[in-house]
Design a protein around this nucleic acid. Structure first.
Length: 622
RNA sequence: GGGGGUGUGGUGAAGCCUGGAGUUCACGCCGGCCUGUCAAGCCGGAGGUCGCGGGUUCAAAUCCCGUCAUCCCCGCCA
């Protein structure tokens, strides 16, 4: 079978035959429709139209049948009168939900008193003169409806039906508009869209790589890119100057509401750039998406916070600015406290801080639950204090606090009568983490009606592990502010890295990059990566830096997360056409799945005996 | 890796705490009636190994243990 004009003709003939079988007469695919269902208005009354779509609902009154026809544009009521047109009535009898149908008819204004104000097309209806089933539907596994809260596994198994639901259809449209807005914004600024490979070298630095075995080089593996990071930097070396890409990225880590194994980023990079150039390029793109999806103007420039300030005031590097309840440092208040736990913490270099949760009127068990939550988050404990209406403090530790100390506390927290104060004393990292989480538990608004973007700047170069080990806070190609400082005080050194945060969600991150191979080597040194290891993993990249690399900077924005928030969805899967479950499973295709022995042989792969055995006995229930 | 929630006809829920006949509600499905509905209405009907396995008990959807799936959180995610 060759490819040529003959094959196209064959395809056409098959299509026509299928059409003839389905409708009992030849179906001319090109002229199935002369109008779109959701666009008909009173001004169209009197015109003959051809429509095609799906049966959304069928209301059979015996003497008159109503069919709500849905296509991608919306829905319209079609009216069938079996007495006037028995042939059409016969077809209408067999129609069921989600049959794919085509019809012809006359658009007319609805009779007095039957207008449906809830429908954009509610002033008109189509009097059907011809009706044809293009494709029947079996009874559905769930109803095509936004009202029912269908089990998500079921939705994913029949995702193609799920996508017919108005909410999902709207999310697909929103996603498409978001990406279109981004492309337009980038093109308008003179960016070049460049594709980078999806089969790349494995450089397991942060997340686990998704690996792809090579057939031609058995025993070797590609990785799917965690991001186009190094390739886009090479594009800067390559003189592209302004790069962008809607890039698919892969990270093999555990799933969360806002994390999938594969996801999409708006990836950008610019030569001769610093931070301000990045922000200036990105703000219009993000604002364009908000305009496209919400019809609102986001004030630019976005506000900024340094990482240190964000941690101190909100206990996190991705603060939700939509509400207050900021952390208050109480070290001065409790420096010589009668409450030994706090005094000891402070003496050991710890941090005591609190939040004012406002009037809560919580029961004792609810307060205990907060203490339990704090412990789950890693705190040794949590002190709650209720400011009574008479100004006295009710708390398990009230008796350890002197009058002066109590007054200083109320003053420092700016507490009002009735307020619930939550206080943690621990290592600074733990205190902030716990209070930051409690702040969200107690104050975070439902949904995302309000949008508060911000840049968080000046991240540390390295994150210090509990064992004192260093790892890159951003990634190892991020430029530090000061190389000497980085070498001498790596735990404190700041980098030219920044995050974009929206309503407490990290939308993306970027940085000014290292363009000097000597600096890059210094970073690897501090990280304890030997010359030999650096050469084998990143030698190809460091070599490129030696050929006149321009200073450059860039950023990547998580498209799924941005659309999720703008669409007010609780998780990323609602804005992905075909997502996977938390265990990386696709219930529709039953993927991942075992492969033929022959495929493995060709790849030079043999499964471990225990894995083989587990596969053989694997027969999951439910 | 750890903690928590959920699993009941095709769908969504109630029943579980406090064991006593697969019981109930809504939607869907099948059949019938019906000329203005729009989540149509009315009448009738079918449909379930209560995720799976084990235990306790005279008796388990219900209590206990294990396991699987799924969702949320912690860890993890440069």
């Amino acid at each position: 079978m060759g490819v040529g004009p003959g094959d196209h003709e064959g395809l056409e003939i098959r299509r026509r035959v299928v059409g003839r079988c389905a409708g009992g007469r030849e179906v001319d695919q090109a002229s199935l429709r002369s109008a779109r269902a959701g666009e008909l208005r009173a001004s169209d009354a009197g015109t003959d139209v051809k429509l095609a779509g799906w049966v959304a609902t069928r209301r059979d009154h015996g003497g008159v049948v109503f069919i709500d026809l849905r296509d991608a544009s919306g829905r319209i009521q079609a009216v069938i009168n079996p007495e006037e047109n028995p042939a059409v009535g016969t077809v209408a009898d067999v129609l069921r939900d989600e049959y794919c149908i085509a019809l012809s008819g006359l658009v007319r204004k609805r009779p007095e008193g039957t207008i449906n104000p809830d429908l954009p097309t509610g002033e008109v209806e189509v009097a059907v003169t011809e009706l044809r089933v293009l494709s029947p539907s079996e009874p559905l596994p769930f109803q095509i409806d936004d009202r029912a809260d269908v089990d998500e596994g079921r939705r994913l198994e029949f995702r193609y039906l799920d996508l017919r639901r108005p909410r999902m259809a709207a999310n697909l449209v929103a996603r498409s508009r978001a990406i279109a807005a981004m492309r337009t914004a980038m093109v308008d600024q003179g960016f070049l869209e460049v594709e980078t490979p999806t089969l790349v070298k494995s450089t397991p630095e942060g997340a686990r790589d998704v690996l792809v075995p090579s057939r031609l080089r058995q025993g070797s593996f590609y990785a799917l890119p965690q991001s186009p990071q190094l390739f886009k930097q090479l594009l800067m070396v390559g003189g592209v100057e302004r790069y962008y890409q809607i890039a698919r990225c892969y990270r093999d880590e555990d799933f969360r509401a806002d994390r999938q194994i594969e996801f999409t980023q708006l990836d950008i990079e610019g030569a001769f750039w610093g931070r301000e150039d990045v922000f200036a390029a990105l703000e219009p793109a993000v604002a364009a998406v908000a305009r496209a999806l919400r019809g609102i103007e986001i004030p630019a420039p976005f506000p900024r916070l340094t990482w240190a300030e964000s941690m101190a005031r909100f206990g996190t590097d991705k603060p939700d600015l939509r509400f207050g309840m900021e952390l208050v440092e109480l070290s001065d208040v409790f420096a010589g406290s009668g409450f030994r736990a706090f005094a000891d913490v402070l003496a050991a270099g710890g941090l005591v801080a609190g939040i004012d949760a406002g009037r809560r009127d919580l029961s004792r068990s609810a307060l205990d639950a907060l203490v339990e939550r704090a412990r789950d988050l890693g705190a040794r404990g949590l002190v709650w204090i209720v400011v009574e209406d008479d100004g006295t403090l009710r708390s398990p530790i009230a008796k350890f606090l002197g009058d002066e100390e109590q007054a200083a506390l109320v003053s420092a927290m700016q507490a009002s009568p009735g307020d619930l104060l939550l206080i943690v004393g621990d290592r600074p990292k733990v205190t902030r983490l716990v209070l930051g989480a409690l702040r969200l538990d107690l104050g975070r608004p439902e949904g995302h009606d309000e949008l508060r973007f911000l840049w968080v700047t000046d991240f540390p170069v390295f994150a210090v592990g509990d064992d004192g080990s260093l790892s890159p806070e951003h990634h190892p190609f991020t430029a530090p502010y000061d190389i000497t400082e980085m070498r001498d005080h790596p735990a404190e050194a700041l980098s030219r890295a920044y995050d974009l945060v929206l309503n407490g969600v990290e939308l993306g991150s970027g940085s000014e990059r290292i363009h000097d191979p000597r600096v890059q080597k210094e970073v690897f040194d501090v990280l304890g990566i030997s010359d030999r290891e650096a050469e084998s993993r990143f030698g190809w990249f460091m070599r490129a830096l030696r050929y006149g690399t321009p200073p450059h900077a860039g950023f990547a924005v998580g498209v799924d997360r941005l659309v999720m928030i703008l669409q007010n969805e609780p998780n990323i899967r609602e804005v992905m056409p075909f997502p996977k479950t938390q265990s990386g499973y696709d219930p529709m295709t039953n993927s991942p799945s075992a492969v033929d022995e022959l495929q493995l042989v060709e790849l030079g792969i043999d499964l471990r005996p225990d894995v083989r055995e587990a596969l053989a006995t694997d027969s999951p229930d439910g």
